[in-house]
Amino acid sequence: MSISIKNISKSYKKLKALDDVSLEIEQGELFGLIGPDGAGKTTLFRILTTLLFADEGTASVAGYDVVKEYKSIRRSVGYMPGKFSLYQDLSVEENLNFFATIFGTTIEENYDLIKDIYLQIEPFKDRRAGKLSGGMKQKLALSCALIHKPKVLFLDEPTTGVDPVSRKEFWEMLKRLREKGISILVSTPYMDEAALCDRIALIQGGKILRVDTPENIIEKHPKQIYNVRSRETYRLIQDLKDYPGSENVFAFGEFIHFTSSEETFEPQELQEYLLEKKHEELEIYPANASVEDVFMDLASSSET
């Protein structure tokens, strides 16, 4: 077991950031922590990387207890905080050298691990880190987090504010790292990235809503989702919300995703209702659920 979290709770004054969270993450797994801002993702990361003490519960990383054996953890994990936190006024190479030195190693020693990533930023090795583009910064940060060959890698929202091409590349890099036996815990607010993980945990309001593979999460979702579209999107949302038995209505790309709480729901009846409301170019058909749909559904039912 690479990461084991048992009944962790943490509060900031009155706000409950984490509420009885338990998780198990396997060796060599790419595990996604999916949830909106303020769900408690960063708090969990900070507890696991020994920067914060939990109020209740225990956790271990790479077999070490986060409180008693924090020194061993610091030697065997890599952490990439959500905010870019390398020295902006040092060059790419100097940053990497600095982190290698404080981990008591050298770039050469673990070069094979970071080679794939570092090769892409090597042409800019004399450039100050502050002058790099978002995607480059992120690659440098990942290189720095990997320089000491960690057993577990923590990535807190690594793709926030990064362009789509770099995001795609980044996830490919993560997959290659997983093949080298490194366990990776990654958090993201982007639901589309969830499908790229081995397993995911949906988290909201400090509570874990569900833990499974992305496929299972979608498959096990009991509700049928309908894509609805008409010419006037805004009025459509209003009318769908007013429809009897309406449960979830939210925009998803060019469509509106709609679910009903009624077991006897018939799309035909909805169509008639909407036509009566003078909607033009109306389309209604069953859609394949995505992680986002499941999340929205679970989130809205956990709130009530």
Binding site: T49, T50, L51, K71, R74, R75, V77, Y79, P81, K83, F84, S85, L86, Y87, Q88, F99, I102, F103, G104, C144
Partner: peptide
């Protein structure tokens, strides 16, 4: 302020 301390703190320094 710039967040580098957080990165330093998870190292065995």
């Amino acid at each position: 302020e710039i967040g580098t301390l957080e990165q330093i703190n998870v190292t065995p320094i």
